[in-house]
Write a protein that binds this DNA or RNA. Sequence first.
DNA 1: TATCTTGTGGTCAATGGGACAATAAGATAT
DNA 2: ATATCTTATTGTCCCATTGACCACAAGATA
Lengths: 242, 242
Amino acid sequence: MSNIVAPAHSHVEPLNLPQDVIKALSIDNLVFGLDNDELKILLVKQTDPMHQGKWALPGGWIRYDENLRDAAYRLLEELTGVKQLYLEQLKTFGRVDRFPTERVVTIAYYALVSAEHYSLVAGQSAADVSWQRINALPDLIYDHAEIIAHGMKFLRHQVRHQPIGFNLLPEKFTLLQLQALYEAILDTKLDKPNFRRKIMKMNLLTPCNEKQQGVPHRAANLYRFDSDAYQHLSESGFSFEI
Amino acid sequence: MSNIVAPAHSHVEPLNLPQDVIKALSIDNLVFGLDNDELKILLVKQTDPMHQGKWALPGGWIRYDENLRDAAYRLLEELTGVKQLYLEQLKTFGRVDRFPTERVVTIAYYALVSAEHYSLVAGQSAADVSWQRINALPDLIYDHAEIIAHGMKFLRHQVRHQPIGFNLLPEKFTLLQLQALYEAILDTKLDKPNFRRKIMKMNLLTPCNEKQQGVPHRAANLYRFDSDAYQHLSESGFSFEI
DNA sequence: TATCTTGTGGTCAATGGGACAATAAGATAT
DNA sequence: ATATCTTATTGTCCCATTGACCACAAGATA
């Protein structure tokens, strides 16, 4: 146990482990993004011979003196350059046989990023990192498919009970964009006027007093999610439900 | 890191660690129980000099070849003798300084047990294990107070969205018992007729065709939670909401 | 000016929830 | 036996919310 080989994993520097890591503990990040009303997830292509052609969640080892969430932020930032995400612990996966050479327990975190951040990511590590359609995932290493499945299930649940969907949109968005997001994640059709009313009645959106630009039809109003208002409301017993 | 001392923790056998444990990874169990319409949690009194008089969540080390949930079951069973619980992963806690001597990450699981199991627990380890009122907790070691606080928040949320409250009741229960449970956990008052209707409309309870025994007033009908029906309904898109 | 697309507001019936009154069924006290 | 107490259970009314659908408005394009 004291002399394990560095396992194939989606590191930035896969082989040079620092001395003081907790070797048995890793982080895996599920980064969801919305692209043309389709949900995608950020994956890393494996280059080592063992996992040629397979993909993995962006993750890596937790440092010995590093808080869990900090590790998740660091690893994600190393891969995407994005800060200030909605980043939350998902679940810890530790099946005895999930890792071939050694017992490794991984803590999964998930993040939702807006389409705006796409370019930042793409510019970083060239072809190694890319967005993959959640409905047509490539081959994944270890139990990463299982982790993603759990993450999707969790996301579908969360998005209905917490106002987290906004994180997938740009800061200013239209009501139809928001609706399309829910339709993509929940895989349903929603009635436009009714959806609009439901959302607006919550008093969580502040109008930007701006209109959409460059659309070949009537421009919609832009709104911004008011997290202070949500904070305030949820302290008064309000609970977000879609 | 290779030679850490066995830290004070709520083990059945605190000092004899097997050779092959992952020393940095532990489990802590939050076992909630309902006693006279009051929510309680199972705690273990610390006996070592370091933590004299303090209490801890029942937990311990994960074995090297043991799945996480299995470890949680094992540790819980060693302390309480209870099997077949609703046992679910809660969250992983790993603040760098949560443990004084070493970096230790702990995976918290939670379980809900019915009042029926009380005696089983009490007979096991005498005075070392006892139920503590959630609203008047004693001094706890490490970050266990924080873990419990998170567990309570989670429980309050879960109990409204998943039919898990039934696990706190005996197999056969009255509607008023169920209502009292929700009132205890959510700390609210509910209208009896309305609560009754709401629950019954879900079609999740099967009447036992039996009545309460030994009450000094009109006896209520007993019901039993129909988990098959719930399984069936939730596949059809039904979602439990209180 | 016509027409197309999407945004935005309105209506109406059905549903569901909260407040509360009323009645039923037992148990106990006199 | 009767009154009285406690809890169980049913009923009813009102209002908020939901869903289905219609209609109009605002731009953009032909």
